[in-house]
Design a protein around this nucleic acid. Structure first.
Lengths: 334, 334
DNA sequence: TGTAGGCGCGGAAGCGCTCTCAGCAGAAGG
DNA sequence: CCTTCTGCTGAGAGCGCTTCCGCGCCTACA
């Protein structure tokens, strides 16, 4: 029965070396060799010693933890649970962190977070942070206090960002629908303030204008039920609709259900293009044609940037958003 | 331009007090009062000071971080990205952690993780860990090195667990199907070694035996594509099937698509009950009737247990798994 | 006036580790 | 035999914070 966990001093004592030497071999640092290394390793094994990461971080000033900052919208619904987006961000980050044995820390703040709360997180994000869903204000604040940050949405110009071409994606979506012979293309947009929602709406409008088609829009909330309701409203007001561009798959899944509920068929009567290529898209029936947001890749890129060291202020990368064809759009260019 | 971040010593100096006193007021500890508190707070504000959590953790021996240990199955597919389960675990945990300002740390290990890797995580999980998906071996190992652990699946009897009644849930699912007049009830099970999969299979078999119905089983992998394929195989071999019990919603969503692909209708020709009540269930079309696994509640309970202090060895809680009726089962008791 | 007792505060010893620096051996060179 | 260099090793000073201990002061009670 051990009284308390063994420390590096115990290891050093058992191995008959100094603490400095023990530290050297534990870190594979040069300047220790021959039988000493072996003795230290034996001592580690004998004691079941595991270095204390906290002490290590304090002494070295380096942390093996990168943070992700995310806003929790409402109670229950916004944070991770409700939306597949977050899990994809985490998956992308973990895929690169796992290999280098760095841990990921989740920091949630409300959408009404005080600057002080942001500062507190920034002050402790030594290894850096990925800003997953943040307001421009928060991102700017965070970046002022912690340079090692990269955002996954476009914010203030100074804060490094890895963004998706949301405008282009929405534009493409409308084009595809039009190329398949659709002319009454409605849109279900995301929540008002959301930067992604704004961009996707912009892309839709731009395409519709260029195509000379009427803007038929409804507002949603990026959640399934919102998509369902919005689709119902749209169908009620515009019974002649033949396509919908929906700003996220979760809403699109709801829209498919709503369309089915009115007795129409997807994709024959109403075609749908979603956005995100999330798990919701493959679970819908028919599976959704959608605009693939390379979230995992973006998150991985952001993480690599952080791991590499300093992130140049104003750094910017833009990922393409590609069309993925599945069952909710007609195959032929009818 | 600050050279380096202010420390508590800076605060103490500016406030004209000792470091000990500054520490007291920063921690709202007794033994400091009157104008001193105000002076310290002023100094904090003036310097933009934020305590270093690492140093704090080292000195106090307490961490404001709870870990979640999860296995990454294959490349890309298992971890978070592929399965909605993880995001629900995280959501449940965050809902309680957020309120007490504790952070969550994700630790991923492969299914082939060495004991040493587990030990390393256990040694640093001061505040405790929720074992989300682990093998019984891993759980036992972890618990030996770190008593503050609670598993979300049943494992060795000694390791505290908060589990769902998977057996009972599966049993209920079959009963419901039978009560609605279904007699040819097939099952799509989860991967062989998975504890949850095993329990759900047990529940299915028990119910079928009691009902005097034939066991018609296929194996899946807890992913959508696996459910799709399994359903196709089942339908091919047993064209007279009138119901399916599917061990997870993701697979069930695939099964719905497969059934539709063979020209059958859900729920009229083939009824389906899924398992989990995940986002996949509400995205499917028709939305899936499913067995609700209260993952968020379980994860929250586990987290609260950890936060409360020591977890009694062998502690056990069992959550009920309830039937949620949606569109994939017939309304009437035809 | 004397002695407890309580309160606010400062001094200082760590928490477990890293890392600089100096020391000391042995090899190489004169 | 003495010097210079190199390569291991250990002593010790922190990293930024918490917390124990004890000192002085003030109030209370005898």
């Amino acid at each position: 029965m051990r009284i308390s966990k063994p420390t590096i001093d115990d290891v050093a004592r058992v191995a008959g070396v100094s603490r400095a030497t023990a530290s050297r071999v534990l870190n594979d640092a040069p300047g220790a060799s021959g039988p000493v290394r072996a003795r230290v390793h034996d001592a580690v094994a004998a004691l079941g010693y595991r270095p204390n990461e906290t002490a290590r971080a304090l002494a070295s000033g380096r942390q093996r933890t990168v943070d992700v900052l995310a806003i929790t919208y409402g109670p229950n619904e916004g944070w991770l649970g409700g939306h597949p987006y977050y899990s994809r961000v985490l998956a992308g980050m973990m895929s690169v962190l796992e290999a280098v044995d760095v841990q990921l820390r989740l920091c949630a703040v409300g959408s009404d977070a005080t600057p002080a709360a942001i500062d507190a997180i920034a002050a402790n994000a030594t290894a850096g942070a990925v800003l997953a869903t943040v307001t421009p204000t928060m991102a700017a604040r965070f970046h002022r206090r912690c340079r090692r940050a990269v955002s996954l949405v476009a914010t203030a110009p100074s804060v490094p960002a890895i963004e998706a071409d949301n405008v282009g994606g929405a534009y493409t979506a409308v084009q595809r629908l039009h190329a398949r012979g659709r002319g009454r293309i409605a849109a279900i947009h995301g929540p008002a303030g959301n930067p992604c929602a704004i961009d996707r709406r912009t892309g839709y409008r731009r395409a519709m204008r260029q195509l000379g088609l009427p803007d038929i829009s409804a507002d949603g909330d990026f959640l399934r039920a919102g998509g369902y309701q919005a689709a119902l409203r749209l169908l009620d007001r515009h019974p002649d609709l033949d396509a919908m561009f929906v700003a996220c798959d979760l809403m699109a899944a709801g829209a498919v259900q709503a369309i089915a509920a009115t007795g129409r068929r997807v994709p024959d009567d109403v075609s749908i293009v979603g956005f995100d290529d999330s798990v919701a898209a493959i679970c819908a029936n028919p599976p959704l044609s959608t605009m693939r947001l390379p979230v995992e890749e973006m998150a991985a890129a952001a993480t690599r940037l952080l791991l590499a060291g300093t992130v140049p202020t104003g750094h910017r990368e833009r990922f393409a958003v590609d069309f993925v064809e599945r069952g909710s759009t007609p195959r032929s260019t009818a």
